[in-house]
């Protein structure tokens, strides 16, 4: 589904990604781990199409279609979703209104009419119940004054509403309490299917107990330096990153 080849990206001439190769097939869950500043969020942003990052070399494609020429919203219309590490606040715009706008924008891009109100309400009810989100929450301004955990849960609510083909979750687990982690992971697992793929960026093994990955990759200095099965995450938890950094140098 997603194919990244020798991807180099920089911002203001600062090189951040230095030759990423990654292939994600439909039905798979990939975990990306790695030390702070190694480029995980950058990779997510580049896939989503953030323009500040300049692609210097390499390619990225979704279902064989080159993504480079597509605007972020066009990528979203094709089913790419990013759960942000730091979701932004939009004062005065309710969660509901934001979702309605987002869903209808994607529908329009696909040549569909706006979603009828009753269907929208039904969808909102269903997804908010699944994620145990209080209704009052949905009328509040997007992310404004939300706690860290609330913001993350709200990201997953949006994911559930949009039902993306490829979901990238950037540290969605950080900030979530133990119960919330379970609820959110459960929500993510509901999206899993043979036609979808998920990339989970995390620092902790804990999330991967709930969302069991097919592959684990370690990013270091803008490069995937090690890939393995879910056991790799356990090993990292135990030993940290030093041994991998060592290996990378050798």
């Amino acid at each position: 589904m997603l194919e990244i080849k020798d991807l180099h990206a920089s911002i203001e001439d600062k090189k951040i990604l230095n030759g990423i190769n990654l292939k994600v097939n439909a039905g798979e869950v990939h975990a990306i781990m790695g030390p702070n500043g190694s480029g995980k969020s950058t990779l997510a942003s580049v896939i989503a199409g953030k323009e500040e990052f300049e692609i210097k070399k390499g390619s990225l494609a979704l279902d064989g279609e080159n993504l480079e020429d597509l605007d972020p919203e066009e990528r979203a219309h094709k089913g790419i979703f990013l759960s942000f590490q730091y979701p932004v606040e939009i004062p005065g715009v309710s969660v509901t209104n934001f979702m309605k706008t987002a869903i209808n924008a994607s529908r329009k891009a696909r040549g569909l009419e706006d979603m009828p109100a009753n269907q929208m309400l039904k969808l909102i009810r269903e997804k908010s119940e699944m994620l145990e989100i209080d209704r009052k929450f949905l009328s509040r301004s997007l992310n404004e004054g939300f706690s860290g955990g609330e913001k993350k849960r709200n990201e997953i609510f949006q994911m559930a509403m949009l039902e993306p083909k490829l979901a990238i979750l950037d540290e969605t687990d950080s900030g979530l309490d133990i119960d919330a982690l379970r609820i959110v992971a459960n929500g993510v697992n509901k999206l899993r299917g043979k036609d979808n793929a998920i990339i989970v960026i995390t620092h902790y093994q804990r999330l991967l107990e709930y969302i069991v990955p097919d592959f684990v990759h370690v990013l270091h200095d803008g490069k995937i330096v090690k890939s393995g099965s879910k056991e790799l995450a356990l090993e990292l938890e135990e030993k940290g990153y030093d041994w991998i950094k060592q290996e990378a140098i050798v």
Binding site: A48, E73, F84, T101, I103, A105, S106
Partner: peptide
């Protein structure tokens, strides 16, 4: 803010209107 909206499928013009 604009990128966040874009990422959700909302184009820049619409994003500004929303904000």
């Amino acid at each position: 803010q604009i990128f966040y909206c874009n990422q959700r499928g909302i184009d820049t013009e619409k994003a500004i209107a929303l904000i």
